[in-house]
Simulated scan of single mutants.
Amino acid sequence: MRKFFIVITSVILLSSCKQTENKNIPQKKETKKDSTKVEDSSQTAQVSSDLLEQFSKNKNEVILKLKSISAEEANTLYEKYFEENSALLQQIAGKESGILDKFYNEDEADKKAVKLLGEKLSKHKLQFWEIGEGYVEIEPLHDFYYTIFKDYVTGDYKDYLHLKSEENKTLYSADAGLVISFKDLGDRVISWENFMTKYPDSKLIASVKEEYKNYQMDYLVGQDNTPTAERATDENYIYPENIQEFNRFMKKYPKSPTVPLINLFMENFKSESIFDLLRAEQDKL
């Protein structure tokens, strides 16, 4: 009986020791969790690749379709394709947000990930587009739409896409300030004035006019971090470089409808209602 008791006690002690040892052994749960993270990252990368493949597939289908439709139908196809692409690019950017958020990081692993993504985008005629304040988007190459549609759409759409392709070569503004020069902006204003004069009945006129007015206002008043006048002190004045640019513009393009707006601004820039005055004059155009 005593021997039996000793055996039972030994078994209990041995079992207790094993349980204690098991508690001290690192659990496999954490490893499983890390594996899940890797798996999620892999799935995200795959979804992103699938979306990029869809982007190129859609492009090829559009190119094929353009060969058998009229110019007016090609115009409509462009508008539809542009909208669909914009939505698809948002999805791609969402899937790649982890890398886009680290675009400016100095960590070698992050720099490598950005480089690899850039190479992947390049294969699909896409690129990183830095928009300021640490934000980066994914956009088609500057002449993406022009290259696809130029030989199939009507004249107004072709000229429109060409103008946009030229503008998309560089960033327009960032961090509440213009990136291009005021001279370049003045030339943009003229380009769109010429477009509207050439194609007064174009379906694009409404959207073009809206963007044109924004360009005009930026040219006249500037943006928060690139104003055309000093209005924060008692000695308000237009910056000499902007006066010089205004004079250049008026001399080179005396018949431009922007000239009366320049004169209006130069005469009333000190007024608190200058924006309202300019917008009222724009509405007459």
Rank of each mutant, 00 (worst) to 15 (best):
R2S: 08
F4G: 08
F4P: 01
K18H: 07
K29E: 06
K32T: 11
K33H: 10
K33M: 14
T36Q: 04
V38E: 00
S42F: 04
A45R: 12
L51P: 10
N60E: 15
E61C: 07
L64K: 14
S68T: 12
Y81I: 04
E83I: 06
S97T: 11
G98S: 15
K115W: 08
K120P: 13
L121T: 13
K123M: 14
E130M: 02
E130R: 02
I131T: 13
I131G: 07
G132A: 00
Y135P: 02
V136H: 11
E139R: 15
P140W: 10
D143H: 11
D143N: 15
T147S: 15
T147Y: 09
Y152M: 12
L163E: 09
T170P: 05
L171N: 14
Y172Q: 09
S173I: 03
I180T: 11
F182Q: 11
K183A: 04
K183G: 00
D184T: 09
D187C: 02
I190L: 12
W192D: 06
W192L: 06
D201A: 02
K203C: 05
V208K: 08
Y219W: 06
Q223N: 10
P227M: 02
E230S: 02
P240I: 00
E245D: 08
N247G: 03
F249G: 07
M250W: 04
L264R: 02
E267T: 01
N268Q: 09
K270Q: 09
S271I: 06
K284P: 09
